[in-house]
Simulated scan of single mutants.
Amino acid sequence: MRNPTGRQLRFGTELRKLRERAGLSSTEAGQLLGIKQAQVSNMEAGRVGVSPERVRTIACRYDCSDKPLIEALSYMTSERTRGWWEQYRELLSSSLVDLAELEHHALSLRDSTTARIPGLLQTREYALEIFRQAVTELSPPDIEHRLSFRIKRQAILFREEAPTPYEAIIHEAALRMKVGGSAVARAQLQHLLDMSDRDHITLRVITFDAGAYPGSGQSIHYAHGPVPQLDTVYLDQAHGLAFLDAEAQLHKYRTLFDRVAAVALAPKKTRDLIHNVMREL
């Protein structure tokens, strides 16, 4: 049996949340559904497939009347295609592969970064320099795998039909760092300007003059699902990516992101600032 993907794990987590809201143990849920407790546990661990019809039956037995959530969960289990990211499953950490899957299915994405340009907006040369400076030195093949993976992730912003709406808030510090030297940094800034011309991309900058602000020093990544309960926050940490989906956590980071956005420049002023930084390089 293959290990469940991040999306399959999330689906199982949501089934568990439905059961817990109903006040049922896994044994009681099995009795109610006419299946063994082990099967309930396997479904909640994302290890077995669940049909859309079974999802609706489970929701009914658990007295869940949230139709948008039920339909969203039904769609999650009916969409079982494994995407391009699976070819990297043996090459990169599972959290990185799960990130690409999450981004692919997200209805929209929001990023707030301080010291680096967000990965979805990095040029190849900028990303290459970032990987070369990794604390744990990467071999040339590892660098190439990470680089190709990062570039492929960006495809969601270039789809001809329904490209993913994306909002990026970047601190001025990231704009002024000469990652890879002046030429690479200038090309990266030009790429930001080019991407900000796209209707589905909103780019805003927090200036040094803004001073301290909520969440300063922290990178925040927020993926919107088909319903708010299926949103996901992912954080870059020293040991890798951490995915958060508890209701209280989602509320906290929605609020935090809105407060960060409140101190950022408007898109036009952002473009003006980027032009100024380019002239100073």
Rank of each mutant, 00 (worst) to 15 (best):
Y213W: 10
A155G: 05
G211A: 14
E172M: 02
G225C: 12
M195E: 12
E160A: 15
I220R: 05
P141Q: 07
A246F: 09
P214G: 09
A134F: 03
H145Q: 05
A155R: 15
R153C: 13
I169T: 09
P141R: 07
D199T: 14
Y166G: 07
D236Q: 15
R198C: 08
A187N: 09
L203M: 06
R146F: 07
V184H: 11
T202M: 04
D199Y: 13
A210G: 01
H224L: 11
I169H: 01
D199I: 11
E167M: 12
P165K: 11
Q249V: 02
V135L: 05
A238S: 15
S219G: 14
A155E: 13
P165I: 14
A168L: 06
R186A: 10
P214M: 06
E125W: 04
V184R: 12
T123I: 08
Q154N: 13
D231T: 02
A127W: 00
Q188L: 06
L175S: 01
F243G: 03
Q237N: 13
D236L: 11
D245N: 12
I201S: 07
F158M: 12
S219T: 15
H145A: 09
A134S: 13
I201L: 14
E247H: 01
Q188T: 05
G215Q: 01
L241R: 00
T123G: 10
R124S: 04
Y126F: 05
L193C: 02
T202D: 06
F243Q: 05
Q249G: 03
I143S: 01
Q188F: 04
T207V: 10
L235N: 01
S182M: 10
Q133P: 00
Q122S: 07
V205M: 01
H200Q: 10
Q229R: 12
A238W: 08
K178L: 08
V179P: 04
R146G: 01
I170T: 05
D194M: 06
Y222M: 12
L121E: 03
G211F: 12
L192W: 03
H221M: 14
I170C: 02
H251L: 12
A223E: 06
Q133Y: 00
L157H: 06
R146K: 13
A174H: 09
A183F: 00
T207Q: 13
E161N: 13
H224A: 13
M177H: 11
L244S: 02
L189E: 02
Y222L: 15
D245K: 11
H171G: 02
R150A: 04
I143T: 07
V227L: 10
P214R: 10
R198W: 03
S216R: 11
P226D: 15
D209C: 06
G217L: 11
A183P: 00
A242K: 03
Y213L: 09
P140F: 02
T123M: 09
